[in-house]
Design a protein around this nucleic acid. Structure first.
Lengths: 83, 83
DNA sequence: CAGAACCCCCATTCAAATACCGGTATTGTA
DNA sequence: TACAATACCGGTATTTGAATGGGGGTTCTG
């Protein structure tokens, strides 16, 4: 086995993460938040829509910083999987 | 530009993350902790040695859970970069 | 009509995650 | 003195996906 493809559960988890981030964005635009977090708007859109279901740790950290979210809360509310 | 290679700063940040996780592991073996977090020992070793400097969010979340670490503290102590 | 904001598709590059190999150092034990 | 087991390291190879950019499309509002 080498780098197993993402499971449906992992994709659903990514969708929950994306939804959470989108809700936290509130009125602000994607370009504004993405620029503030130091990533491209396309990447942010992929994460929010769940098309990038397992983003990097520091990517989420930068978004959490920008959006005023707690990393522990994010992890907790996104992972009813493998608790 | 397409997927810029990791900068030296990002690699150093990865080393700090690895060191932090290794210290939190204490006496426990790599295989034990890796199994508990649901990843391979090889991957854990790469992260701890800084050879995988930007691990996935949920990978770090699983390790934090196993090691009893706070995600926010990890992010804070690993990123004197781009605060 | 222009602009803002978001979406989808395509293509590219680099790295995460895994596995296997051999090597080293330590510790326990017969 | 061997010898085996444990634990970690380095290198190589593989597959998959993150992250980015470009181009085009939709919807809404001024």
């Amino acid at each position: 086995m080498v780098r197993t493809p993402l499971t449906p559960e992992e994709r659903e988890r990514g969708e929950r993460l994306g939804l959470l981030l989108r809700e936290a964005r509130r009125g602000r635009s994607m370009v504004e938040v993405a620029a503030s977090a130091g990533l491209s708007a396309e990447t942010l859109r992929k994460i929010e829509t769940g098309r990038a279901p397992t983003p990097a740790f520091f990517t989420v950290a930068a978004l959490a910083q920008t959006l005023g979210l707690s990393m522990d809360e994010i992890a907790a509310s996104c992972s009813p999987v493998t608790v």
